[in-house]
Design a protein around this nucleic acid. Structure first.
Lengths: 123, 123
DNA sequence: CATGTAGTACTAATTTATTAGTATGACGAA
DNA sequence: TTCGTCATACTAATAAATTAGTACTACATG
């Protein structure tokens, strides 16, 4: 198991699918995933079970199959991962990160201005 | 081995040390690292060797011991990791990332404005 | 010269992550 | 009722990442 809160690559991939669907069965997730790359049904099952065990998904019995739903919002999990990333890669400072995004043209001056404008409200 | 370009947690930790020192021997890295947490000398050696094999470090013989130096700048590697992170976690869009930073108070409106101002030059 | 320190190469143990197999059951349709 | 599909639990194989041991050499110094 990983340290709580952070998701590994495949775990995250699957969480994104479940967040997208809102609620999902193994079959549904498998359908989405196998459209992208070959993956066994049981592999998906294992991962969903693991994510449930780790507390990232809640599972409810519904008819024959289990239905999984996210235990936390995408925003919350993504925030946590971002936080983690900023401390690991940028020693905790977000500024150089944003500077890097700008430098690499991942974001524009205008985007930044626009985002800054959104901050007005709660300052 | 990991996919080229991206560094695992421990690899990154060690790269940060080497970037900090500019150039480093196993002993130097071990000294820095073991001040933080217990780690065997040979573990550090293995990691430096691995990073050299992966192309992240260049090693030169200098007297008795090897001297390692980064093969790429921190900026370049960090950019690559950021790029990777943005695609894995944010499906490639940097905007929601910056929004999340703002929301979580990792960065302020003023920071953003200031960074946007820096972009003037090359627009 | 014996001993400790610093170094290497090579190997291996351990842990974590990923992928998937096997055995089994329920159920609808031919 | 038999076959295929969808489902589960349990188990296991494989791969990737992390940590460290063992054996050995060179060298300074008491």
């Amino acid at each position: 198991m990983t340290k709580p809160g952070t998701l590994t690559e495949v775990e995250l991939e699957i969480m994104h699918v479940v967040w997208g669907l809102g609620t999902a069965t193994v079959k549904q997730v498998h359908d989405v995933l196998s459209a992208r790359r070959p993956v066994a049904y049981t592999t998906v099952m294992t991962m969903l079970g693991l994510l449930a065990k780790k507390g990232h998904l809640k599972r409810e019995e519904s008819g024959k199959a289990f239905v999984y739903r996210p235990a936390h919002t995408k925003g919350r999990v993504v925030s946590k991962m971002l936080d983690d990333f900023v401390s690991r890669v940028f020693h905790g400072s977000a500024r150089p990160l944003v500077l890097a995004l700008l430098k690499d043209r991942k974001i524009s001056k205008r985007d930044l201005e626009e985002i800054a404008r959104l901050a007005e409200v709660d300052e």
